[in-house]
Nucleic acid binder design. Structure first.
Length: 109
DNA sequence: GGATTGACGTCTG
DNA sequence: GCAGACGCCAATC
C-alpha cells in the first residue's frame, strides 16, 4: 500500500508551527494535488487523535471554514487563540502575517 | 462501474 | 468587490 496522497497533506499540516496558519490553496499547490478540495477532503478524514493540527488550515479568505467539522464550532477558534492567533468572528486577523507557506518554509526557514 | 459528495479555489459576469 | 458557475480528484454509496 503506497503512501496515500492525503498522508502528504498530514505531513505538511504537521509542519505548521504554532501561531501560524496555512491555506488549502498553498498546500494543494505545494503538493501539486491540483485542487484544494483534495486538501479539504484529506482533512475531513482527520480526527482529533490523528495528531494533525487541522485547525491551522483555513481557506483562502483566512476564515475558519472547517470549524463545522470540529466537535465544537468554537473549538477551532479556541485552539488558534491558544496559540497566539487572533481570531475575530471566526476569521484570522492579520491573516497574511500569520500565514504559513510550505514552500516558503523550505526555502527560507 | 456510475453518481454523489467534499473542511476550496479560480475565473467570469 | 460580490455572486454565481465550473473545475478538480479521490472516496463512498
Amino acid at each position: 500500500m503506497a503512501k496515500h496522497y492525503y498522508e502528504q497533506v498530514y505531513d505538511v499540516v504537521i509542519q505548521i508551527p504554532e501561531g501560524r496558519v496555512s491555506t488549502y490553496g498553498h498546500i494543494a499547490d505545494y503538493l501539486a494535488l491540483g485542487s484544494a478540495r483534495m486538501v479539504g477532503w484529506a482533512l475531513k478524514q482527520l480526527t482529533a487523535g490523528s495528531g494533525v493540527p487541522a485547525h491551522r488550515v483555513l481557506n483562502h479568505k483566512g476564515e475558519l471554514s472547517g470549524r463545522a467539522a470540529f466537535p465544537s464550532p468554537s473549538f477551532m477558534q479556541e485552539m488558534l487563540e491558544a496559540e497566539g492567533v487572533v481570531i475575530k468572528n471566526y476569521r484570522v486577523q492579520d491573516f497574511e502575517t500569520v500565514l504559513w507557506i510550505p514552500s516558503e518554509q523550505l526555502e527560507n526557514f
